[in-house]
Design a protein around this nucleic acid. Structure first.
Lengths: 138, 138
DNA sequence: TATATATCCTACCAAATTAGTAGGGATTAA
DNA sequence: TTAATCCCTACTAATTTGGTAGGATATATA
């Protein structure tokens, strides 16, 4: 399951995607509209900024903006930044790979199954973007 | 990611699947062959038994056996027993559903995306079985 | 019936992770 | 210069994870 932090990240990005192209959005604004604890949200936005998804402006009239267009931010990217690996096992993770001890990766049946599952999940999460997300709001 | 407990569960089931049809397998035997801490393994096996996947026999010559044939135990079932939900959000979970507050499930774009992702993942995890897993060991 | 062999049950524990909060520092617009 | 705004470091409580301890219970067999 995604952590609450990751869910908050998506909620914040969703809001910023809706405001894309307009003025910077203040943290307090996002916090109120999306019901995210303000100080917790600060942490989240800094992480998304450091990862290159957002840019910020300080001082009056400042706030956060998307640095990348909504259609170019896929869901897998967001999950990896805030939540971590998408794969079910470290030994089948593309971005957080860890060798598993006591198991031969060439022959491990569990690994093969989890590879197939990972591919199926990623096929969706890497294709769907923030734009898809907000366009699907009815 | 799957917890270590879930990975141990798969390792134990894999071993029991290989011994399917033969004599009961002792916990200590599984523990040694699959390198799982013995007392921790006890807990895991009891859970799998309570869920109906295993049966046990006490006393001399006793041990654990699969109650269900390997081809009838799919990976999603095992994950749900030991790890919990497979979906990325509680509000798209089939077996561990929870309503999300502050969000209309009919219109929520994030929910729609996570539903699609869940379906893709489940399509694999519900199709692949313990039999597939051990047949893929080379 | 006694004994050895197994599983089963209840309880406990340390370390890591999650979900925040507190308080002030740095930067910028006006 | 000052008010507004993001940024940084540190702390904390609650929960989850990954176990361990010790004995109770059931069973095969002599």
């Amino acid at each position: 399951m995604l952590s609450k932090k990751t869910q908050y990240a998506f909620k914040a990005l969703e809001y910023l995607a809706q405001q894309h192209g307009k003025d910077p959005v203040k943290i307090s604004n996002i916090s109120i509209h999306q019901k995210i604890p303000l100080k917790f949200l600060e942490n989240i936005l800094v992480e998304l900024k450091n990862a290159g998804l957002l840019e910020s402006k300080k001082g009056k009239g400042g706030g956060y903006m998307l640095k990348v267009a909504p259609k170019n931010i896929n869901l897998a990217t967001v999950i990896r930044i805030i939540n971590g690996p998408i794969a079910l096992l470290p030994c089948v993770s593309l971005n957080f790979y860890e060798k598993c001890k006591d198991c031969n990766e060439e022959t491990c049946g569990m690994r093969k199954m989890m590879l197939i599952a990972r591919d199926a999940t990623l096929r969706i999460l890497e294709k769907k973007t923030l734009e898809d997300m907000i366009k699907n709001e009815v």
